[in-house]
Design a protein around this nucleic acid. Structure first.
Length: 435
RNA sequence: GUGACCGUAGCUCAACUGGUUAGAGCACCGGGUUGUGAUCCCGGGGGUUGGGGGUUCGAGUCCCCUCGGUCACCCCA
């Protein structure tokens, strides 16, 4: 093979493309019925755009693009969409009706080694609500994510929304004696507690001023999980009296939205990005298989950072790779979602090719998905097999009787066949439109 | 960027301790059985054994490099 697709990228042959479209359609359907509008931005952005956010942590992972004439290394292929979103919001902030509810399905690229669930290019459903301070926004974002899970056949037994809050964790930590200026370090340590050795964890904790009993409580705190609707237990056990308002508000709204059974509070969820300011959440497969399906949270300072007014914001991202893996794991990923032809036209007898193309043309102009064979064989068995391979819903078998407006309509799912009027075909086929 | 394992046809695999022209099934394409999705029969396209170099009379097989895949780390969408 002389040429290959670049490392960590995928080719989409018809079958894979059909799945990708199926997933994107679900993303769009769910976004739209939840009141979001679709946007997109450029695939390349000025490299500087990624320097703004928290010290440019993303710049190192971005593919660089040089201008062929100036040779300046000033562009980056977008490694994530949030900076583009923030830029777009900041630019039009004063004229856009609030709250802004946008979604997008951009492809994003990162120059890291591929591994399970993480490739160099993937498509990411982003959904954000900007300019709404209320926890209704957080609840609505989570609802949309859950709505999508349900749309794809997943239930609370398959996936769980794990919710935390940076200020709540901050209070717990500060109560345990972590200084404010070490809070960011504490979040980082919390984030990687399951990935590092117990000893490394204790050492890190010790640097933050957490030893002995306090360390145990820290560890215990980040492992506690409470079902939505059980927040009072969390309050009791952590022993915080204050600042659970956000979570309590959120809890109420998740319950009202009817998705409490999908959600739990897990103070171990931190999220790697530094720009989150409040709620943070991830969706995981319940047994912990695969990576996080989605992740997001509140980032109330970001629009301002990009030169806009101070606006609250909450949103999440969901990549196409992990959700597909999870669905496949659960046996919920359809084998083939290619569009099904309404009918496959088969000639019976000699010299029918003219009638086949004529009928195909007529039906296609009616908006129907029609196919026929290019083979010269008149072997009915082979032609039906071809119709079956194309996943056609019906076979329309035509012979001389088409002169009398008569054709045979064979239901390829049930195997039954009947004679019908050719002129009725558009109605008959449309009535069983399976896409 | 670091580490581990793995690369023979589109897929699953075969080829004795290195030994003729690298095979088979499935898939794909064409044809036959005058035929309604099966079965069966015939034929066909496909591989510089991922690529390059080395050892050898001789390499798919042994060695090195490289590319790619998988998984983990790093980091996180």
């Amino acid at each position: 093979m002389e040429f290959q697709a670049p490392k960590g990228t995928r080719d989409f042959y018809p079958k894979q493309m059909a799945w990708q479209n199926f997933l994107f359609d679900a993303w769009r359907r769910v976004s739209i019925r939840n009141g979001f509008e679709q946007i997109d931005g450029p695939v390349i952005e000025l490299l500087d755009l990624y320097q703004i956010k928290s010290g440019g942590e993303m710049v190192g992972q971005a593919f660089r693009v040089r201008h062929p004439e100036t040779e300046d290394e000033q562009f980056a292929i977008r490694p994530e969409f949030t900076p583009t979103l923030a830029r777009m919001v900041a630019e039009q902030a004063n004229t856009l009706p609030k709250p802004i509810k946008w979604f997008s399905i951009p492809n994003v690229c990162r120059a890291e080694r591929p591994q399970r669930g993480r490739l160099r290019e993937h498509w990411q459903w982003n959904l954000d609500i900007i300019g709404l301070d209320s926890m209704t926004a957080d609840a609505e974002a989570i609802f949309a994510a859950v709505d999508l899970m349900q749309e794809l056949g997943l239930g609370p037994e398959h996936v769980r929304v794990k919710i935390s809050h940076r200020q709540t964790i901050g209070h717990v930590l500060s109560k345990l004696g972590v200084a404010d200026d070490k809070m960011v370090n504490a979040f980082e340590l919390l984030d990687k507690r399951d990935k590092i050795e117990a000893q490394a964890f204790s050492q890190g904790a010790s640097k933050l001023g957490l030893d002995g009993d306090r360390l145990d409580r820290f560890d215990q705190t980040c492992r506690m999980k409470y079902a939505a609707g059980q927040l009072h237990l969390l309050r009791q056990q952590i022993g915080i009296e204050e600042n659970l308002e956000d979570l309590e508000d959120l809890d109420e709204k998740l319950t009202a939205f009817g998705i409490a059974p999908w959600c739990e509070y897990d103070l171990g969820i931190v999220r790697g990005f530094a720009y989150y300011t409040g709620t943070v959440f991830e969706i995981h497969e319940t047994s912990g298989a695969e990576r996080a399906i989605a992740g997001g949270g509140r980032y109330d300072n970001l629009i301002e950072l990009f030169g806009g007014p101070k606006m609250s914001a909450v949103g999440f991202g969901m990549g196409d790779v992990v959700i597909s893996l999870v669905l496949a794991d659960k046996g919920l990923k359809p084998e083939d979602v290619s569009p099904r032809p309404h009918a496959f036209i088969i000639p019976e007898g000699d010299d029918m090719t003219g009638q086949v193309t004529q009928l195909a043309g007529q039906l296609r102009q009616q908006g129907l998905h029609i196919r026929f064979s290019y083979k010269s064989t008149r072997n009915m068995g082979k032609l039906l097999k071809e119709a079956d391979a194309a996943h056609a819903r019906y076979a329309v078998i035509i012979n001389d009787q088409i002169q009398q407006d008569l054709v045979n309509l064979k239901d390829l799912d049930s195997g039954t066949q009947s004679q019908v009027n050719a002129s009725q075909l558009p109605d008959l086929l449309q009535a069983n439109n399976t896409g």
